[in-house]
Design a protein around this nucleic acid. Structure first.
Lengths: 154, 154
DNA sequence: GTAACTGCAAAGTATTTGCAACAAG
DNA sequence: CTTGTTGCAAATACTTTGCAGTTAC
């Protein structure tokens, strides 16, 4: 099993809270860590079922939130409509650029930005998470097909 | 009327599209520009009604999107649950830090970050909007009342 | 055994849409 | 008068919740 480390964290977190270790929880953990990238609840559900697991939508939602609680998963609202979930990658802070129009997401890393933001956040009394910058823009495709907006003054 | 400039842009945009100038549209424009800050559709509706205007929720939603289309308003998903709208302030790019927990939003400006991002975005084929950086974190209050997350390795 | 967990279906929430009445041009 | 617009209420889409049956411990 490829997620030993996270699994042990998870088990410990469950124990701490007096929560139970169920097969649904373990299987969801596995699936979330199976690959890199952002997934929504529905996609996760689909994949779980493809891999032959019986699990309900409600359980997926409930336990995704639990994984977020345990610090193993991050929950984003990058698309306009649904939440995206992504497992935490240790020591690999990264940020997101997402397209305002089509929702496509790409990741980037920038220590320079990170430290500038850190400073700014603290100045405002905020505590930034490690990977927390979301840039909105237009991807190449959408940029080409969209009209110009309000003139930015003279 | 304090929004002459935006009003004229709006009227022109409506004309261009063969759309009609209705009192609901004008009144919504006024309200959005009445003050700085982020408002959701519901708040806007409430304020419009407080100011004595009869307007339906559907019309507010429809015309907020229209104002976005016209480049007069920006639509964000800063909170987890609903969209926030903010009128465009000419020449004043700014970014948002929002609290993951309570949704509180503060703004900041950073030319240094802006230019770094510009570079990064272009490298990824994206065209960043002027004000597009959203940082997620915890505000002072929520940070204090929340438990520590996943240890960031040794 | 008992309290937590699951699955189901029903409820919620924010937003969108169909349609008939209304109004701008 | 003609076509866009409004208001209403119903529909959506995603997510959450109540509850009875199931299962971990």
């Amino acid at each position: 099993m490829p997620v030993e480390y996270e699994r042990s964290i998870f088990l410990e977190a469950l124990r701490e809270r007096g929560m139970r270790v169920t097969s649904e929880r373990l299987v969801l953990l596995e699936e979330v860590f199976r690959q890199h990238g952002h997934l929504d609840a529905e996609q996760l559900l689909e994949r779980l079922r493809l891999h032959g697991h019986k699990i309900s939508r409600a359980t997926v939602y409930r336990n995704l939130d639990l994984l977020v609680e345990c610090g193993l998963v991050r929950k984003y609202r990058l698309g306009q409509d649904r939440f995206l979930f992504e497992h935490v990658h240790r020591g690999q802070a990264h940020n997101h650029i997402s397209c305002r129009e089509c929702g496509q997401v790409v990741e980037f890393v920038s220590p320079a930005i990170a430290s500038l933001l850190d400073e700014i956040c603290r100045a405002h009394g905020f505590e930034p998470d490690e990977n927390t910058v979301q840039v909105l823009g237009l991807c190449g495709i959408c940029a080409r097909s969209s009209r110009p907006r309000l003139a930015t003054a003279s």
